[in-house]
């Protein structure tokens, strides 16, 4: 169990750095079409920001903000977004995860629809990876004697 330790410098730096890490994670996600990046890398960055909070503060204080119930919902929610986009493509008359048929409901051509489909899928991957890494870290850091949370 990670206990709280009163170190003003560490706590202030963690508090200041967290929004910048999360903003950079979103940059990595949305620039994944044009530069190295994407859902996995951005998700790991989001997870790193939460893990920094858990290390700098303690577990209870972080799970007040990002509760375990919401964490488990995000675990499944990312996969649901991914599979939902795939099923939406079937409903619009294409194959599974064939994003070009999304141009029927979006005001763009088939090629741009594929780029937007990639973006939606990457958002799902980012949510899943971030929530799952935070969940694994919480389980390991609390040594199994978990607080229950929800």
């Amino acid at each position: 169990m990670i206990k709280k330790h009163d170190d003003l410098i560490v706590e202030t730096l963690a508090r200041l750095l967290t929004p910048f890490i999360q903003a950079f994670a979103l940059y990595v996600l949305f620039l994944g079409h044009y530069s190295p990046g994407g859902g996995f890398q951005g998700g790991v960055l989001v997870a790193a920001s939460f893990i920094l909070l858990i290390i700098a503060f303690d577990l209870e204080k972080t799970t007040e903000r990002f509760s375990e119930k919401f964490n488990v919902i995000c675990n499944g929610g990312g996969v649901f977004i991914y599979a939902g986009i795939g099923v939406l493509c079937i409903l619009l008359g294409g194959n599974l995860l064939d994003y070009s048929v999304l141009s029927k409901i979006l005001p763009v051509g088939p090629e741009e629809a594929r780029a937007l489909g990639i973006l939606g899928v990457e958002i799902g991957v980012e949510i899943t990876v971030a929530a799952c890494l935070v969940s694994i870290f919480i389980d390991l850091a609390s040594k199994g004697e978990n607080l229950g949370g929800s």
Partner: peptide, 11 residues
């Protein structure tokens, strides 16, 4: 050309 995504790895 097919996906309008310059990053081939992402595509």
């Amino acid at each position: 050309t097919e996906t309008h995504t310059p990053n081939i790895v992402t595509a």
